[in-house]
């Protein structure tokens, strides 16, 4: 996993609630057996006016000029801001894969769906929960100033706007440690393999039918 420490990134505003993972990456792309290559198909049905198919070359596909990702001022954005319940629906990890593959490293929203929220951390993508008031302020400032960037500091757990306004965000120490160092969680868990084996033996003795 890519480590995440600090980022000063261009912001792209996606002004919608309940952005679901079907919208983030439509089902036809889930047929891939790889983890990479989903970026060109991120928000496929909103982004293009024709039907996307896996393996397609997207460079010449007709784009929807009204969709925010297609607007020249947001090219190269690394921070996505959105409204409540971002990432709801299907558990498909293809959603964070697509967002990360496109080039985003941070998503800021008032709330995230649970499964999507845990999936992001496994892929070096940082989800930040901010109050609806703060998110609203970011939307307004972003609309008002082209080239609007945010400074995201994971070590300090802060987000700072160009005007110097700053807010703190929460992250568990375990997730922070993994992200800062780009650690493989499986490796960390296997350090406790003996404890897992001991638990398993006890569990099997109490409920042998679980192991039948």
């Amino acid at each position: 996993m890519k480590a995440f420490t600090r980022l000063n990134g261009l912001v792209c505003p996606l002004d919608r609630t309940n952005v679901d993972t079907d919208a983030i990456i439509p089902k036809q792309f889930l047929k891939s057996i790889k983890r990479s290559g989903f970026g060109p198909f991120l928000f496929d049905e909103w982004r293009y006016t024709n039907y996307g198919e896996p393996g397609m070359d997207c460079t010449n596909r007709p784009k929807n000029p009204d969709f925010v990702l297609n607007q020249p001022r947001y090219q190269g954005a690394q921070v996505l801001i959105a409204r409540d319940n971002f990432g709801c629906g299907s558990s498909r990890e293809h959603a964070p894969w697509a967002i990360e593959d496109y080039g985003f490293r941070v998503i800021i929203a008032p709330s995230f769906a649970d499964i999507f929220f845990s999936n992001t951390y496994k892929n070096g993508l940082l989800p930040i929960v901010a109050s609806a008031e703060i998110v609203d302020r970011l939307f307004k400032e972003c609309a008002a100033s082209e080239g609007y960037k945010l400074d995201v500091d994971l070590e300090a757990q802060t987000v700072t706007t160009p005007s110097g306004f700053s807010f703190k965000f929460d992250i568990t120490p375990h997730r922070k440690h993994c992200m800062l160092n780009g650690l493989d969680e499986i490796g960390l868990t296997l350090v406790h393999a003996e404890e897992i084996k001991a638990f398993e033996a006890k569990h099997k003795a109490a409920q042998p039918w679980l192991f039948a």
Partner: peptide, 29 residues
């Protein structure tokens, strides 16, 4: 690796959907 895993909670089981990285984690650990 499917959000509708919640279905199995009908049996008094703790059941939930996970992402693919977690599928790998469960496979390995």
């Amino acid at each position: 690796g499917d959000s509708h895993t919640a279905t199995h909670g009908a049996f008094g089981a703790l059941a939930h959907g996970i992402g693919t990285s977690e599928v790998e984690h469960v496979l390995a650990t």
